[in-house]
């Protein structure tokens, strides 16, 4: 067990956890932030995606000890009212079916659009390939991202 001070959504949190505990379980079990989901535990599905500074990371395979001074942003932190442009686009295209993977999809899309504000279809496909959707909402995800890119 060790003490860590991490920055999540602009707030500093002190946690006392095992140093190999993945960030996912710190967020979900210790800080009770449930918007970030568990899907595979091996960085293979993207359901647990959060942003570390401006980069998308898979929090299920990212130990707390590696966070350091980086700023973590989760789905709870991208907007006050759930009205980030990416979230709005997700609503406009009624992207979700079951919705379980979608917070990870959104966090991955947010990071993509930060690094590339007008991605091509192919760039979207490459950037989003780590995020699985078993319900099969890929085409609406793509449309939603393209619409945000077109408006920026």
């Amino acid at each position: 067990m060790a003490k860590y001070s991490i920055q999540v959504n602009g707030k500093t949190h002190e946690v006392d956890v095992m140093d190999d505990m993945p960030l996912l379980w710190v967020l979900r079990d210790v800080l009770a932030m449930k918007g970030t989901k568990f899907g595979c535990g091996k960085a293979l599905c993207g359901a647990c995606t959060v942003n570390l500074d401006d980069t998308a990371i898979r929090s299920c395979s990212f130990p707390i000890s590696a966070v350091g001074k980086g700023k973590i942003t989760t789905i709870e932190g991208i907007s006050e009212e759930g009205n980030h442009p990416v979230q709005q686009a997700w609503e406009k295209y009624v992207v979700p079916q079951c919705g379980y993977c979608q917070t990870g999809q959104i966090m991955n899309a947010v990071a993509l659009l930060k690094s590339n504000s007008s991605p091509s279809e192919q760039e979207i496909e490459q950037a989003m390939q780590g995020n699985l959707c078993r319900c099969g909402t890929y085409n609406r995800i793509k449309e939603a991202i393209l619409s945000v890119a077109a408006e920026s």
Partner: peptide, 12 residues
């Protein structure tokens, strides 16, 4: 639109 849409995209 599905009734859970906003809750889903905001992680709630």
């Amino acid at each position: 639109p599905i009734i859970d849409l906003h809750d889903i995209v905001s992680g709630k």
